[in-house]
Each structure stands twice: as structure tokens, then as C-alpha cells.
């Protein structure tokens, strides 16, 4: 017998003894989840405001912009203020177009890239799959956001989202992932909640432990 079979044999043998279900039977429904989880507000406006508040609490920068023209202006201002020399992005329609307007040496991650070069970039500009109001979270995947490293290796992660990508809660975000990718999931799905942080030294908060020190979320529309 191989180890897989040995382990399964032990599991099945162990489970012949029945345990008492002290807290009830059956998997909870999403409705049951929503009855206990943190509230999100009923309207899209409330949820938008909640996202903005959560992002601020997390020390992320949240910037709603009315259209792509304003996005371009804001991004250029940011590039100038932080003196970006190199940028990285991916072939997302919105991200690539807007990155082009920066007129900087820019890496596109999609078709493979040199990781040392990506590490030298000042900013990674990516799109996302959703913004989650409940927790101020940005949902990215290896397919929507130019791979695994773009949103984590450069010191500043800039997210370009559209207002209609806002979902109320984590339950809705997981439902969206299932619906969007079905049986062909991206190899990485990441819920990003604020810039990278640590409290490992005397429980004092420090931003930018290994991932980005800054997270800026532009929301178009």
C-alpha cells in the first residue's frame, strides 16, 4: 500500500467512531454567514463610503476619479511627487493605456519578465477583480493583475478599479470568483487588505515589511 492509502485507511477507521455535534449539523448557508458577519450597509453609496473609510483605516490611499482623463492627471501627479523612474504593469486594457501616459520605461509582465528588473521598478500598476466594501480589500488574481509578483514586489502598488467592481462583502467576492472563473481558476487569488505590514517587533506597526509600502487605489466612475 502506498502512503496515500495508508492515511485514508486510518482516517476511515477513525471516523467509524462518531463524534457528537455539539453545535449543530450541516454547512451554514451564505445567508447564515451574512447574519453574523460585520454589516456593510444597504445601498451602493453606503458601501462606497464604507470602502473609503476602511481603506483609510488600513493606511491605503483611496482616490475616486470621475473618468480616465482625471485618472491620467492624478497618476502623473503621483509619479512626479514620488519621482518614479521605472514602472511595471500588465496588458489590462485600462492599466496599460494609463501607464503609457506616464512616458516611463515600463515593464509588461504578461509574457514573462526578468524578476530583477521588476524588483527595480518604483511602482506596479495593476487592475483588479473587485473591491470589497466590508474590509477595504482589493481582490486580484494572477490573471487579472499581471501575475503573482506585480502586485507585491515593487514598493508601491497602484490599483486601477472601476466603480462597478465594488462588491459588498467577502461572500459576494467569493461568489464573483466562482462565477467569473468557474472550473478554470487562476493559479493565485489574493485578497489584499492595505499595504504590507508587520508588528513582529514589540507589536509596533511598520508598513512595507516585504510587500509594498504603499497601496493606492484609484476608482474610476
Amino acid at each position: 500500500m502506498n502512503e496515500r492509502e495508508n492515511i485514508f485507511a486510518r482516517i476511515r477507521e477513525a471516523l467509524t467512531l462518531k463524534a457528537h455535534a455539539h453545535h449543530g449539523h450541516g454547512l451554514p448557508t451564505v445567508t447564515e454567514h451574512r447574519q453574523v458577519m460585520p454589516p456593510v450597509g444597504a445601498t451602493a453609496e453606503e458601501q462606497f463610503a464604507l470602502f473609503a473609510k476602511n481603506a483609510a483605516d488600513l493606511k491605503a490611499t483611496f482616490k475616486p476619479v470621475k473618468d480616465e482623463a482625471e485618472l491620467g492627471v492624478e497618476l502623473k501627479a503621483l509619479a512626479a511627487a514620488e519621482k518614479w523612474q521605472r514602472a511595471a504593469t500588465h496588458n489590462g486594457k485600462l492599466a496599460q493605456a494609463i501607464a503609457k501616459t506616464l512616458v516611463l520605461p515600463t515593464i509588461l509582465t504578461n509574457d514573462g519578465y526578468d524578476k530583477h528588473e521588476l524588483e527595480r521598478c518604483d511602482v506596479g500598476i495593476s487592475e483588479c477583480d473587485a473591491l470589497v466594501a466590508q474590509t477595504g480589500t482589493v481582490l486580484v488574481t494572477s490573471r487579472s493583475a499581471g501575475g503573482r509578483a506585480l502586485s507585491c514586489l515593487p514598493p508601491h502598488h497602484v490599483v486601477i478599479a472601476r466603480r462597478e467592481q465594488l462588491v459588498p462583502d467577502l461572500s459576494a467576492a467569493f461568489a464573483l470568483v466562482k462565477q467569473k472563473y468557474g472550473g478554470n481558476f487562476p493559479s493565485m487569488i489574493s485578497f489584499i487588505t492595505g499595504p504590507s505590514r508587520t508588528g513582529d517587533i514589540e507589536r509596533i506597526l511598520v508598513l512595507g515589511a516585504h510587500g509594498p509600502k504603499k497601496l493606492t487605489i484609484f476608482c474610476v466612475g
Binding site: 493565485m188 516585504h210 509594498p212
Partner: peptide
Amino acid sequence: EGNARLTAA
């Protein structure tokens, strides 16, 4: 911290 993200990337 993002360390697992980078370890996996």
C-alpha cells in the same frame, strides 16, 4: 508581510 506572496511568486 507579503513574504508568502513573494515565496510563492
